[in-house]
Design a protein around this nucleic acid. Structure first.
Lengths: 186, 186
DNA sequence: GTCTATAGATCGATAGAC
DNA sequence: GTCTATCGATCTATAGAC
């Protein structure tokens, strides 16, 4: 077993999953060390700020991921209807039909919200704005597009909560089908 | 200041608020002791099972609270339309327009979900079933009533997430107005 | 860059005095 | 029924060897 020279960026997906599964307080450094296969010393080498810096890095990567695959297409794809359809597909996969928690949403409900407030607000603000843009381009009246966009982004978050509580991934998928329907032009 | 003889039930609202604000892991016994004004010894006198038993008790009280004020009226009030309207009003107050977290929803997104799974499932199942009943009685076709009910209950949870992340209580209220509109008979 | 060892604080939980 | 004192475990974070 050769000594691995870890890259900071390679740790981010593992860190993200650990925070998703255990939350900010629940994800202890020992747990993170086990999950990443690194010692605490190594973790502090990459993230001198400790857990807080890890979460910041994870949130930045999540935002970049959504920016590339969801937000940017919604904003400027030549075919806004296709971008919206792609969004629902991407999100269903990403959240594993509600089996996987949205880290941004979960942090928003925790007391970590105050610490990471700016990143959390940015993520949802970007999403709502990008979707509003696509809804407008697809023919929705500009007066109602922001409200509809908030309904949909909020609806997705609620679908995660409900599907996880009821332990019914089908519920997540059905709600998303319904939201997709509402996103169609009138 | 006379020595207070605490009643177990009197502690529940304080415990609920503490868990709402700090989550299951974040609400330490020291924090709970400070919030309730009791020592750890007293807390273990009332809740021999520690934090887990406190959360169970809080969840039971929350369910009873909603049963009396929301679920029962939805199920059997003579005026189902009024019960639905009352539900939206009660919920808006209860969640402080999204400033206050739904403890059941927050626990569903945390790793405490597995420990308290049954209580979390019960709460949302009762809500969805009761609202389905009211929607049917108000004239919605039975085939679509369950789906609409899930949309609404999930939508409320999502509204809490989004409003907290964006720090915009108005967003919570606007989403609830929209959901209330969809609950009207066709 | 990674590790072990460990500091210092805090955790959940218990014991015993009153 | 409430308190203080305290246990052992675990926590975040650091130090220093390699």
């Amino acid at each position: 077993m050769a000594r691995q020279v870890a890259q900071r960026d390679d740790l981010l997906p593992v860190l993200a999953e650990t925070f998703r599964e255990h939350g900010y307080e629940g994800a202890s450094l020992s747990l993170i060390a086990t999950a990443t296969g690194l010692g605490k010393g190594s973790l502090y080498h990459f993230f001198p700020g400790g857990k807080a810096e890890m979460v910041e890095a994870v949130l930045a990567e999540i935002e970049a991921w959504f920016e590339a695959r969801v937000f940017a297409p919604l904003r400027q794809d030549d075919d806004p209807a296709a971008a919206i359809a792609q969004m629902f597909g991407t999100v269903t996969d990403y959240f594993r039909s509600g089996r996987r928690v949205c880290l941004v949403g979960a942090l928003s409900l925790s007391d970590a919200r105050d610490r990471f407030g700016q990143a959390l607000r940015r993520y949802f603000a970007l999403w709502v704005e990008a979707l509003t843009e696509a809804l407008t381009r697809v023919g929705h009246p500009p007066e109602g597009a922001t409200a509809l966009s908030e309904d949909i982004v909020g609806g997705i978050q609620g679908a995660v909560v409900l599907a996880r509580a009821l332990d019914r991934p089908e519920t997540f998928e059905r709600i998303l089908v319904c939201l997709r329907e509402r996103a169609r032009a009138a």
